[in-house]
Amino acid sequence: MARFSPYDNNGGTCVAIAGADYCVIAADTRMSTGYSILTRDYSKICKLADKCLLASSGFQADVRALQKVLSSRHLVYQHQHNKQMSCPAMGQLLSNTLYYKRFFPYYAFNVLGGLDSEGKGCVFTYDAVGSYERVGYSSQGSGSTLIMPVLDNQLKSPSPLLLPAKDAVTPLLENEAVDLVKDVFASAAERDIYTGDRVEIVIVNAEGIRREYIELRKD
């Protein structure tokens, strides 16, 4: 007999790459359940502040609830401090928000990207219950197992054990990072059935926010 399950996996892949003065955040636009595609045009990227974007995959209803919590917390923050929240602050808030539901988690896999208060690219990567880390690049979601090793290979970030600590930002130029993102998504779409249809790429830099789309396999 049909039994109730409060979770679903709607798939999707998120990638973010931080550069010296930019950040690229990308996610595919497919939403699936099981072997069915629900829609080919659902944006997984949420703009939380002027220079802070969140890409999330997992269970869409939880993701949407999470986005709403963060947006409303950010609104309160703006009223109290009369400024936009910084990306590292939003990173900590997201971690706390996820851990708050530690025993009935948001089934959401997040990558937070943007510029920090110095204008440097920053990426934060999470698990579903709020463990997080600032990194130079990251991938989360159904295609992450295919993408992450390629990013490791292409971007070789300095070891976090080095002393003195080295910046995790990647040495790539903005357009090189965007091209890399396009390539990894095209590759992931070949093998991961939950990744496809289209990639939404958001580029954040000093000038502001720019969006690009490229088509992926639709099968």
């Binding site: 979770y7 269970f59 209803a61």
Partner: peptide
């Protein structure tokens, strides 16, 4: 919208068998 809150907009939608 589904039972567990999954929701989206599209030019055409169908529930259950209709989706297949």
């Amino acid at each position: 919208v589904s039972m567990i809150g999954v929701h989206f907009e599209d030019n055409h939608v169908a529930t259950g068998f209709g989706n297949h």
